[in-house]
Amino acid sequence: MRMEIRLKRVYDDPTPGDGFHALVDRLWPRGPSKERAALDLWAEEVARSTELRKTLHHDDLSWSDFEAAYRAELAGPTAGAVGALRAKHAPHLAVTLLHAVHDDTHNHAVILREALEA
């Protein structure tokens, strides 16, 4: 049976169907506690690098350029962390990647999910 990887903002209430909760942001989001988020793992090492995050927010980096740079990070320096995250969630039927980004379409968790599913 194939595992389902879901995405959810860390500010949203957890539900029983979420399964394994992994926060995939490098910075802890303001507001929610680990308990409120029902967090199983804070996988900060698979989040976009601080430099890439700042470039995206402050230098008006295009989405396609961000996507290419983050995919390169996932395949390069953080490849081991991606593999470790894949191994930790493997026993679960459902995994929810938690993030604090407002845009549900253009965020690093979307790219990370694709990398985990590959």
Rank of each mutant, 00 (worst) to 15 (best):
L52Q: 04
D18F: 15
V110W: 05
V110P: 01
T105C: 10
R36D: 06
A87N: 05
P16G: 06
L98V: 01
P32F: 06
L39G: 08
P77W: 05
H21S: 08
R26K: 04
T96Q: 06
R36N: 00
A81I: 00
D40L: 13
S49P: 09
G76S: 15
A72L: 02
V24W: 15
W42D: 12
R71T: 12
A69V: 09
A75N: 09
A47Y: 03
A47V: 13
H106V: 05
A94C: 14
R71Q: 06
A81K: 13
P91R: 15
K54I: 08
H89Y: 10
H108W: 06
W42S: 12
L39A: 08
W63H: 06
T50W: 03
T96C: 07
D18P: 01
I5S: 08
A72I: 03
D65G: 02
N107C: 07
L93C: 03
P29G: 09
A84C: 02
L56A: 11
A84G: 08
V24T: 01
H92K: 00
T96N: 01
E45N: 11
A115H: 07
L52V: 14
M1K: 05
H89G: 09
A43E: 05
I111V: 11
P29D: 04
E45F: 03
E44Y: 15
D13K: 14
F66Y: 13
M1P: 04
H58I: 00
L23I: 00
L98F: 03
A87Q: 12
T15V: 12
